[in-house]
Design a protein around this nucleic acid. Structure first.
Length: 420
DNA sequence: TCTGGGGTCCTAGGACCC
DNA sequence: TCTGGGGTCCTAGGACCC
């Protein structure tokens, strides 16, 4: 059996743990730059705030309904996630952390009399008691069916107590007939549109399609999903593996029009990628830079371009990566556009001690110890203390975060005070 | 005025090999 | 007149997830 454990309205719940006065009150969490809604409490959902709602359009509605608004506090959410996962890891060593707020547990070795319902219930109780985060648990014979079970558990919390189990054919069919095709895990916007066009509106109807047809019209991914939904275990638990790409991308608060402004941003993004690379002891062999104009401004000329450059040697040096990223930027920059978003993505990794030397040009060996020193200084004296000259020296943080909550669990100065 | 960020996987097609 | 077969690797683009 697989269990899918999912935290309810995770970001909103994290904020609420430290603000119990907000229990049963509507909460939304905004994306970077306080741009759009990325999490909603049940109360906010009931008020009709959609996922992705632009904050500026909904400002009035937030006020009218007394909705508490938060800027995204990823330091807090990441730490709370760790705490939840640690507790769930005690239940089985076979655990896959699928995202910041959900994980799959593979449950083996339980006999037919084992009470899964009770098992799920204690899980919910323990996580709630230890962390303050409410969770839902879906249990079934395959991964995708446990996702379905979880949806039911969450939707009908009152009846299910937050735990639902699909353990026989009758329940499986009932669940799949209930589930709309667009709500199936792995079926996104494009696929559900195409499926609707041929009259497929439920998960059940999807499982009735011909295997060859599904593979031909879609891909092997959708075929695997179909079989998994039929109750044939096709998707297994996945090992956590090293990342294959690392990105730092941002939407800007304002438009940038000059290459100098973009050089500063791109350098900073490359620096951030280099730091993340060093954390996972990897070097990259290629790098992508992209720049976008504001796609929402239909009245302005649009320009979107990206470029991938192969590096002459694998590196994770801040200095070298920033240099290459700026070179790449200069190849695609065009005068006359208002740029609103840009990013750097590094890929093609090799582990640090496994670098293929090249004949003519290699990474500067001095950079290895230099980067160690920089990383250590930034750890000891705060992030971004040591910067490249090409980065902005005046402002450390340009992101709009007007409603940021304290880092209650990761910053000593932010620990909550208990009034006695 | 104001609209997020970070990932993974698969496929088709082209370039290349013998 | 008539011009093969089998394979690998790489990349761009498109789909998906949270």
């Amino acid at each position: 059996m697989f269990a899918l454990v999912d935290c309810n309205n995770f970001y909103a719940s994290c904020e609420r743990v430290f603000r119990p006065d907000l229990n049963e009150k509507p909460i939304v969490v905004l994306s970077n730059n306080d741009g759009c809604v990325i999490a909603r409490s049940n109360e906010a959902k009931a008020l009709g705030i959609p996922m992705g709602a632009p904050a500026f359009e909904y400002e009035k509605i937030f006020q009218q309904n007394n909705i508490q608004v938060f800027s995204a506090n990823f330091a807090l959410y990441g730490d709370m996630s760790q705490r939840v996962m640690n507790i769930l890891s005690e239940y089985t060593p076979n655990i896959e952390m699928y995202s910041i707020d959900e994980c799959f547990l593979q449950l083996t070795g339980f006999d037919a009399h084992f009470n899964l319902q009770q098992y799920g219930n204690t899980m919910c109780k323990k996580v709630l008691q230890y962390t303050g985060i409410p969770i839902s648990v879906g249990i079934a014979t395959t991964k995708s069916l446990s996702k379905v079970a979880n949806k039911i558990a969450k939707k009908y919390t009152k009846q299910t107590g937050g735990v639902y189990i699909i353990d026989n054919e009758e329940k499986r069919l009932k669940a799949l007939k209930w589930l709309k095709i667009e709500d199936v895990w792995g079926i996104g916007r494009q696929h559900s549109k195409r499926l609707h066009a041929i009259g497929i509106t439920t998960a059940f109807a999807f499982t009735q399609l011909d295997n060859a047809y599904v593979q031909k019209q879609f891909s092997i991914v959708e075929l695997r999903l179909k079989q998994d939904l039929q109750g044939i275990p096709t998707l297994g638990l996945e090992e956590v593996q090293a990342k294959k790409s690392i990105a730092t991308t941002r939407t800007f608060e304002n438009n940038y029009t000059t290459v100098e402004e973009l050089i500063e941003r791109i350098s900073t993004f490359a620096v951030s990628c280099a730091e993340k690379l060093r954390k996972q002891n990897a070097c990259c062999n290629s790098l992508m830079v992209f720049i976008h104009s504001n796609r929402h401004r239909k009245d302005l000329p649009q320009y979107n371009r990206s470029i991938v450059i192969k590096l002459p040697f694998a590196t994770n040096s801040t200095i070298e990566l920033a240099k290459f990223a700026v070179q790449a930027l200069k190849l695609i920059f065009k005068q006359g556009y208002a740029y609103k978003k840009a990013g750097v993505i590094v890929q093609d990794f090799v582990t640090e001690n496994n670098i293929q030397q090249t004949l003519f040009e290699n990474r500067n060996p001095k950079h290895i110890s230099l980067m160690k020193a920089i990383d250590q200084l930034n750890v000891n004296f705060g992030q971004q203390k040591i910067r490249l000259a090409s980065q902005d020296q005046k402002r450390v943080w340009k992101m709009k975060q007007e409603k940021l909550s304290p880092r209650y669990t990761t910053n000593l100065a932010d620990i909550i005070t208990v009034h006695t």
